[in-house]
Structures are given as structure tokens and as C-alpha cells.
Design a protein around this nucleic acid. Sequence first.
DNA 1: CTGAATCCTAGGCGATACTG
DNA 2: CAGTATCGCCTAGGATTCAG
Lengths: 144, 144
Amino acid sequence: MEKTINGRTYEETAAGPRFKACAPHNVLARLGDKWTILVLSHLAVSPGHRLRFSELKRGIEGITQRMLTLTVRNLERDGLVKRHYYPEVPPRVEYELTEMGKGMLPALEGFTSWIRDNWPQIEHCRRAYDAEHDGDAAGDSSTN
Amino acid sequence: MEKTINGRTYEETAAGPRFKACAPHNVLARLGDKWTILVLSHLAVSPGHRLRFSELKRGIEGITQRMLTLTVRNLERDGLVKRHYYPEVPPRVEYELTEMGKGMLPALEGFTSWIRDNWPQIEHCRRAYDAEHDGDAAGDSSTN
DNA sequence: CTGAATCCTAGGCGATACTG
DNA sequence: CAGTATCGCCTAGGATTCAG
């Protein structure tokens, strides 16, 4: 028998529910990588949800050519972004949110708005935790 | 001047908006790590949103003691989970979602439900992409 | 302009052993 | 039972160079 919570299927065992690696983790892991949300955000606010490679690169502070390429490549592979190639000289490439990509924005926005609302408290908790446990933090100590 | 999209602040430059590393990425990166959502999911469905260490360990397929410790530690640091220590012999430790942790569930659920709904299409897109581009995939090729 | 190919390093994560 | 300490692998991701 299978139930579901947060989109994850799990089986009821004698010892309780048992989850397995799952789709949400898979997608969250991509969104959680270093540049993906920044790329999506940029496309989200741009006219036509569409930008060329160099515009994305200029718009995202610190991203390298390589990482931008890899990031949009992964988004394209997942069907969230469509790549438009214009064989001019010099070549021009534009990336555009697909219908699915656009459909993701509201859900993403809903979640990120929770983050925005609660971010101050999270920061506060981290500082409190770090203060109480001396200097050692598990993740990054940067407050960012 | 600062505007905001998806909880990310950005500045309008002559060349367009310019995002910086931000809170949503920070939180998404934690949720996107290998075990965090599984731990949260487990706490979400458990009575009282509360489980002891060994219950979490048993419930999550393949997680090691070390990774579970690190994961709950980070959640505790962010204030999403509270650690209850009972100095018995043998010791007993329970982890419980905080108010903020519980408050996160609806937003997370909203987003993960989008993932669940669109997961089949994402998988389809990946297979199509991989098929067209021979065998090489950037991320994991496992369909999960 | 866009992006592929190399090289290299930091850190996530697993395996294992040890402790109160 | 819950947690820490070590070690070692492996991959994300940065810097640089080459190419169409």
C-alpha cells in the first residue's frame, strides 16, 4: 500500500512509514544548486520570459560561462527552458521558459515567499545556535 | 532601489536586473541536500510531528548515523526542529518540528505537489533530451 | 557570442570505529 | 541509544584555454 506526503510516496511498515529517495528531492536538489534559481528568477522577470545567454551572464553576479552553460543545459533537459539558437555571426542564443517552466513559477513563488517572510527568524536562530555552540557551525556560517 | 521577485532582491541596472546570491537559494540548498526533505517529511506525518533519532533512522532508507546527525543538526540550527534530550540510560533524543517548522509545511507541500503533478513530464523531457543527445547527461541520468 | 574541453580544489557524503 | 572522530572517495563547481 502506498500513501503520499509532500509528493513523496512511502510504505507503511510495522515500524512506521518508510520513505525513499524521490522526485521532490530530485527537483529540489536541482533548484538548490548554486545557480538555478537565479537563472529562473531572471527569466521570470524578463519580458517574454526570454533572455539571451550574455544577458543572463551579465545579470547574475559571479556566474562563470561554464556554470551558466551547465545550468541552462539542465533546465533544458528537464523541459523547463527552451533553447533558441540563431546561427548568425556571431551566434545568438536565447533561453525561454517553457509552459511547464512558467507553470512552476507560482508554486515556486509561494514557497520562496515563505522563505522571505521567515528568513529573519532563520538568521536569528542560526546566530543563536552558533553563539551557544561556540564557533563551530555545520553548514556555512555566512548569514547571506 | 530594490525590487523583489521570488523573494530575491535585485537591483535595476542599465543592463537590466541583477540578482545576487540570496536567502531562497540558501534555504533551497539545504532542502535540496540529500536527506533534509526526507527527515522533514517523516516528521510531518508523525504524531505530534515528533520522532526519536532511531525512529528517523529506521524510517529513512539508507541514511547513515552520521548523515542523520548532521541533517537534524542543521535543521535545529535553522530553528525548524527542536531537539529534546532525555538523560536516561540508554539516552533518548526526540526531534520535533518547531512552530516555524510546522509553518513551513503548507508552503513546501504546495511546491512539492507541483513537482508531483509535473514529474512525469519532467521524466519524459529528460528521456527525450538524453535520447537526442546520445548517452551523455549532465546531471544524474537515473530517472529516480 | 556561445560553449566545449581540461585541470584542479573544496567539500558533501559514505564506511568504519570509538564513547558516554 | 545517540553521537563524535577519522579516513577516503567522488563530484560540484571555479579558472583557464580552445573552437565554430
